[in-house]
Design a protein around this nucleic acid. Structure first.
Lengths: 306, 306
DNA sequence: CCTCTATATGCTCAAAATGAGCATATAGAG
DNA sequence: CTCTATATGCTCATTTTGAGCATATAGAGG
């Protein structure tokens, strides 16, 4: 009855690769923020490496590779997903990729960091006006799906067309639809010339999409944003961070009300005098108090926000 | 710069095991429902087996094992988590366990199915009165944590003590705290006599806890319950299913209002005349309509419900 | 037939949360 | 002193929750 008894064939061994998606926040120009991702090989890949016998755990192995490849030491991390490659004929071993998500406080060193919106330009909808090509992409997608009702619905849902709302968590779905439609460089029968967004090795852009989706979901019911902010920050900085991650603008007064209502932050006596208008008060994340309530895994903070 | 270049040691190979947590709903006595889990070896283990080269994907491999061990063919599945075992000295290969979650419509064949509350009796709080030992467990936990403030807070949060609310999604946290406290049979320095709940091989009870936690989260923003129900059902049956999974009672009229408001179900013309009082109308899940809106991964239905 | 009981279903109402916007406060620039 | 820019405080209509009362419709027992 044991599964071992039922497997007369020797179980095929495999090579486990650990992949890390590390996010932070980058300042780009006039108080503009964008989420940055830590890359290697000039943005072509995520930090990764094989699981070895001297790694005490999956997480440790992943940390080891990030540290030796980029020098960064990670804080809290979270497992994302495990992918298996498709096997070529004759392969003896197969590859399993186990991916992790980590957040880092802003770093002064911009080496190896790239905006995630370089990879997914269509995901940044903070400025409806310029609207990074979203309209054009949506049109190309609907044209592609013209003859298939199922695909057409999927595109409409994914890209917020035909009465559907734009859902910022559908990052992976959008990427995969575009992959199928041949709009990204990795597409199998893609039209390379019109491909959108920067490519990555293997299926790593899928991993990145999964990570973006996860962090967008996570900031809604978790105080995760604070892992990306400095020790002291203004409330508007929190808003800008959430906006940068979610890729959409939000209502300032309501954001403030919600944030203060959650008891997540406490005032300091200092002000931020760098801005143009009235100086903003600096706040501090109540890490101890919040951990007590939520870090155990409980749901809650920042409910709808968006 | 490549990660491969930085790894002079040969990457250690590993054995990937696929583990399935399959849930359904079981009737036990007077209209009582409980979530059942599909097991092998008389409830001692979850269906599992090694990933092989003839498996087209992780998911396919997992399906293969479930089918050959239990005869069940799975529908929609979802990856849960990947665990690595701790390595003993001298081991050449290590084991990586990739776990999946699946839901099945009620089956007539009760073989191999066991109530998840056999493994986690303290998680069923539908009847506050009898309260499966919850009070006693909580007391033992707080006694154990007496000298460590951090542990005491964790226990209070996990078990809903000292002003904290009971959070039904903290299944894994509760299990791990009890493991540390020596209240479960798997505990390292456990007191076997007073151990609570049925044991499982390896760390499979942790996998089961992860699965229960996931499904409890999932039914809140996803129409997942309907994968556990027959084609036609009463609204109260939906409620009982959600209650069985969440392990807590809910308000009947509000549940109904919410469910109907979501446009998730449609009336049929039949009634259910099995009950004692006024016959209840039978409904049908609007699978097509709902898939269009949500199955792409979108959030929503059944918001707070509990 | 009527009555009782059990369940389904319909409806109300106060409290809380949300979405939008107006009003005021406080800095630097001119 | 005035203008502009941003921070911060407050209001109000709408929606969503949470709780419970009231009515409807079946079978059981007289």
């Amino acid at each position: 009855m044991s599964s071992k008894c039922l497997a007369p064939e020797a179980p095929s061994l495999c090579n486990a690769e650990l992949v890390a998606v590390v996010f932070d926040l980058e300042a780009i120009g006039e108080g503009e923020l964008t989420p940055g991702v830590l890359t290697v090989r000039a943005g072509e890949a995520l930090p990764s490496g094989s699981l070895r016998t001297d790694h005490a755990s999956l997480q440790r192995g992943m940390r080891h590779w990030v540290e030796s490849l980029t020098g960064y030491r990670l804080g809290h991390t979270e497992q994302l997903y495990t992918f298996a490659d498709t096997l070529s004929v004759g392969d003896i071993t197969r590859l399993v990729r186990i991916s992790y998500l980590a957040l880092l406080h802003p770093s002064v060193d911009p080496r190896n960091w790239l905006s995630i919106y370089e990879y997914f330009p269509w995901e940044d909808r903070r400025k409806e006006g310029e609207a990074h090509q979203v309209g054009s992409i949506a049109r190309r997608m609907m044209a592609w799906a013209l003859n298939d009702a199922t695909q057409r619905t999927r595109c409409a849902v994914a890209f917020g067309l035909e009465g559907h709302e734009w859902n910022d968590e559908l990052v992976l779905q959008r990427y995969e639809l575009m992959w199928q439609a041949g709009l990204v460089p990795e597409s199998p029968d893609g039209v390379g010339e019109n491909a959108i967004g920067r490519a990555m090795e293997h299926d790593q852009r899928r991993i990145l999409a999964t990570a973006l989706s996860r962090i967008r979901a996570k900031i809604r019911y978790t105080p995760a944003v604070f892992d990306l902010l400095p020790e002291r920050f203004t409330l508007f900085a929190v808003q800008q961070a959430v906006e940068a991650l979610a890729g959409r603008p939000m209502h300032k007064q309501n954001f403030r009300r919600l944030l203060l209502g959650q008891q997540l932050v406490e005032e300091t006596d200092s002000l931020d005098s760098n801005g143009h208008g009235r100086p903003a008060r600096l706040y501090r994340f109540r890490r101890d108090h919040v951990q007590e309530c939520y870090l155990t895994g409980a749901r809650l903070p920042l409910p709808s926000l968006i």
